[in-house]
Design a protein around this nucleic acid. Structure first.
Length: 816
RNA sequence: GGACUGGUGGCGGAAUGGCAUACGCGUACGGCUCAGGACCGUAUUCCGAAAGGAUUGCGGGUUCAAGUCCCGCCCAGUCCACCA
């Protein structure tokens, strides 16, 4: 009979998956005395199928979870579904399937795929954000935020398709500004929208970075810092000739106030509209507004700046001289005050505008002894104030502060701080999301739905035509309600919430996912913060800022006690094929199912962990997958051979035993560090490979040293290839589950060796090596080095100028 | 235009300022085989017969010693993009 040389992968994987489930091996236990560990991966959008990016994400998280479990931690490793969103609604319009049906079907498929991968989830805590039991709490939070004044309503611009008569999400507008369905040119339209006052938390979000330094990738913190965009400067009030109101600007350079030669206001500024009408240039203004929006939407490179004089002067408070007010298309309405004082000498954008329209340039920062004759570009660096009256001679850095103080003293402005972060627009004119739990009453205004009436459920009598405003508005039974305050006829809010709301607090729901009286029990939330969070870098700004904000809001509400939701963050790299991200449109997708059915989950997991460091881009390679498959079989044969030779077949020499022992403990040490501290799974696997290679060198397996080594191999690989290792654990005759066994400990005695190799360098170049006892003194090392034959030959006719000796490492002889 | 990350053999990648190229893929050779694209082993950065020399995108610098630190440049990827 032919001996099999590959293992029965599918049989083994199924067997252990069933066993773990029956045994409830991965269920997190509340009220357990062991130290807690919360491992979390960003939950998936149920798009239909798992892709390789998911496999990488969830496998990485699983190694962390399984490793911590074997280290005696009570591990929470949950999974759920980020289930609301546009694709479900698009599918509904195209295929006449209800979004919920489409979503639930996808979840069912993907759940099975995750189970087939053997990810050690606590499935008992699973939920989808489209569950009424979950989105009820989105609504509850919304109302709490409303009561706190963190939620408000104001007009904002949306994408409007004039042919479909519907609001479009940004993703539904093509790069050239056309509707995804009818190709009509999309127009901006002003609608009442809901906002969350995240800007109130800007300072706190920035401050939180202190806690995250060293635990989050520097890259992500930098991106967030830029996104939040704190600028220190001053507000300056300019009076306007012939008017009572003032024009307030924000500047980071109050020290240049004397050099403001014109005011520039945003085309969308209310004053621009009024003044443009007076000078008969409303049409020109409209062109500026449209051009600006167009560029913003298409992320176009800024071309030549444009604008015009609005016919009125402002008065510079610092010297009372008139300054013309212009409208300019490079000024943004939604940053600062929507108006600037333009200082062409010291700001490049102002300079370009001034040059084009022949506006004077006055140098106010520089060297008074050597004034610039003619500017060919703005001088933006700091310097000394000049042409600035009483402030002449003041360095800019002091000037910024002093002018701010002067303005404050004269009530003409004050030092102030501005952020780039905007309030979060959370309303969507969509069906498949959480209904906003508010009621519009003509007498009482905006009234929250009473808590006992939550959740406001999504209506089911809605047709998905893709037309009209919000699909919810099509349900009469949904819209028409009684006002909770005055009991009069009122109308329900028909917008739904941005799906980023769902993902902003889901991690805390996992602490208590079945709670029906609160989003979660604050006591059970002692799992927080998430110890290790893992996900794609693409969420560096949006999701990771929103959830940090939400967490801080929950803290203010007394629901959580820690400051940050995620203690350590790992931003995993993309999975690519042919150098670019896998995508259907590129046709370079590798289906995880195909890999699993050919080689099994363990091979798929191992390859994806081994092929690249977790944070780097991973290039898919079929040959590499086979390499992982071969390695696992190599381990399988090794263990079977060891067991077959349960009676020692000869013995290892003392040297071999020592060497194997050292390799074993070195590998334990290396893997422990790589799983638990660095999360460098690729090098951990390489270390186990080295140990396996050494085991293959020795013919006589079955002795105690070999058994210890083999046992370590199985445990060290268990987080990576859990199914096979579980099976081999049994074959080794071990009791219980490998996934529940105690992580092996490296014995420090075996981490040092009898001799160390000392590298001998001459002028920094490697010339020889010595075997020495560890801890040999510098003198001994130097003497031995000089006595070395090879060294002598290099020394002939030269003299040693200097000798650098690094104990247990090297001797470097500098010769002349 | 700006910010960030990276650039190491034929390929994926290793390397607390101290032996560059661990581990894997591929390739070659040998063993085992009826056979093998299975398995076991050996070799494998480049030049050179060897001694030896060169080598971590390019150019400089610091250091006894640089892939690693500093300065300038080139290239690739990601994100942001008129933020006063």
């Amino acid at each position: 009979m032919e001996q099999k040389n590959t293992y029965e992968v599918h049989e083994i994987e199924k067997k252990w998956q069933k066993h773990w489930e029956k045994n409830r091996s991965f269920v997190a236990k509340d009220g357990d005395s062991r130290p807690r560990f919360y491992a979390l991966e960003m939950f998936p959008y149920p798009s239909g199928n798992l892709h390789m990016g998911h496999v990488r994400n969830y496998t990485l998280g699983d190694v962390v979870a399984r490793y911590q479990r074997m280290n005696g931690k009570n591990v929470l490793h949950p999974i759920g579904w980020d289930a609301f969103g546009l694709p479900a609604e698009n599918a509904a319009i195209k295929n006449k399937v209800h979004p919920e049906k489409w979503t639930r079907q996808n979840i069912a498929v993907m759940r099975e795929q995750l189970k087939a991968l053997g990810i050690s989830y606590d499935w008992e805590r699973e939920f989808a954000t489209c569950d009424e039991a979950y989105y009820k709490w989105n609504q509850w939070f919304f109302i709490k935020f409303f009561e706190k004044g963190w939620v408000y309503k104001k007009k904002a611009s949306v994408n409007w398709c004039p042919s479909c008569l519907t609001v479009l999400a940004n993703e539904q507008v093509s790069a050239s500004g056309q509707c995804w369905r009818c190709d009509s040119v999309v127009q901006p339209k002003e609608l009442e929208q809901w906002f969350i006052r995240i800007t109130d938390f800007a300072e706190e979000l920035l401050k939180g970075h202190e806690l995250l330094k060293g635990k989050w990738p520097e890259e992500v913190l930098t991106m967030q810092q830029y996104w939040i965009g704190r600028s220190d400067g001053a507000e300056v009030h300019f009076s306007i000739e012939g008017r009572q109101d003032k024009l307030t600007v924000f500047t980071t350079r109050p020290d240049t106030l004397f050099g403001a030669t014109f005011m520039a206001i945003a085309p969308e500024h209310p004053l621009a509209k009024e003044l443009a009408a007076k000078v008969g240039k409303s049409a020109e203004l409209d062109t500026l507004v449209k051009g600006q929006r167009e560029r913003k939407r298409q992320r176009q490179e800024a071309d030549e700046k444009a604008g015009f004089f609005l016919g009125v002067n402002a008065i510079n408070p610092i010297h009372q001289k008139p300054v013309p007010i212009w409208v300019a298309d490079y000024v943004l309405m939604d940053y600062g005050t929507g108006a600037i004082m333009a200082v062409p000498a010291h700001d490049q954008r102002d300079f370009e505008f001034a040059t084009k329209y022949k506006i004077p340039v006055i140098e106010v920062i520089g060297d008074p002894a050597k004034p610039v004759a003619k500017f060919d570009k703005a001088m933006e660096a700091d310097g000394v104030m000049m042409n600035s009256g009483e402030f002449n001679g003041t360095p800019s850095s002091d000037g910024k502060r002093k002018v701010g103080e002067w303005l404050k003293a004269k009530s003409q402005g004050k030092p102030t701080v501005t952020f780039k972060l905007r309030d979060w627009l959370v309303s969507r004119q969509r069906y498949w999301g959480t209904p906003i739990p508010m009621i519009n009453c003509s007498r009482c205004g905006l009234v929250p739905v009473p808590e006992k009436e939550l959740p406001v459920k999504l209506p089911t009598d809605v047709e998905f035509t893709g037309q009209g405003q919000s699909p919810l508005a099509l349900s009469a039974s949904f819209v028409n309600v009684k006002c909770p305050k005055c009991k009069g006829q009122a109308k329900r809010e028909t917008d739904t919430m941005d799906t980023f709301v769902d993902s902003s607090w889901y991690y805390s729901r996992f602490c208590d996912s079945k709670n029906s009286t609160a989003p979660f029990d604050p006591v059970k939330a002692n799992w927080l913060p998430v110890n290790q969070y893992i996900g794609g870098i693409e969420h560096a700004c949006m999701h990771l800022i929103y959830s940090r904000f939400w967490h801080k809001a929950m803290k203010r509400l007394g629901l959580v006690s820690c400051d940050e939701p995620f203690d350590r963050l790992l931003a995993q790299g993309m999975v690519t094929l042919g150098g670019s991200a896998m995508s259907k449109s590129r046709g370079n997708v590798v289906d995880p199912n195909a890999i699993i059915s050919k080689f099994g989950a363990d091979t798929a997991r191992m390859f994806i962990l081994f092929a690249a460091p977790p944070t780097k881009q991973l290039e898919w390679s079929d040959a590499g997958v086979e390499g992982s498959w071969r390695f696992l079989n190599r381990v399988w044969r090794l263990i079977n051979d060891t067991v077959a030779k349960s009676k020692p077949q000869g013995t290892l020499s003392e040297e071999q035993q020592k060497s194997l022992k050292r390799k074993t403990h070195w590998a334990i040490q290396k893997v422990t560090n790589d799983y638990g501290i660095e999360i460098q799974i690729n090098t951990a696997i390489a270390a186990v490979m080295e140990l396996v290679n050494e085991l293959y060198l020795y013919p006589a397996l079955g002795d105690a040293t070999s058994k210890e080594a083999v046992r370590a191999v199985v445990q060290l690989l268990s987080p990576v290839a859990p199914h096979l290792m579980e099976d081999l654990w049994g074959i080794l005759g071990e009791k219980g589950l490998c996934s529940e066994s105690s992580w092996p400990k490296a014995d420090p005695a075996w981490l040092v060796s009898d001799t160390v190799e000392i590298v001998i360098q001459i002028n920094g170049k490697l010339r020889s090596r010595l075997q020495m006892a560890p801890g040999s003194s510098k003198d001994v090392l130097e003497r031995e080095a000089l006595a070395d034959e090879k060294v002598k030959s290099f020394l002939a006719g030269k003299s040693v100028v200097k000798a650098i000796v690094v104990p247990d490492k090297l001797v470097n002889l500098v010769i002349k």
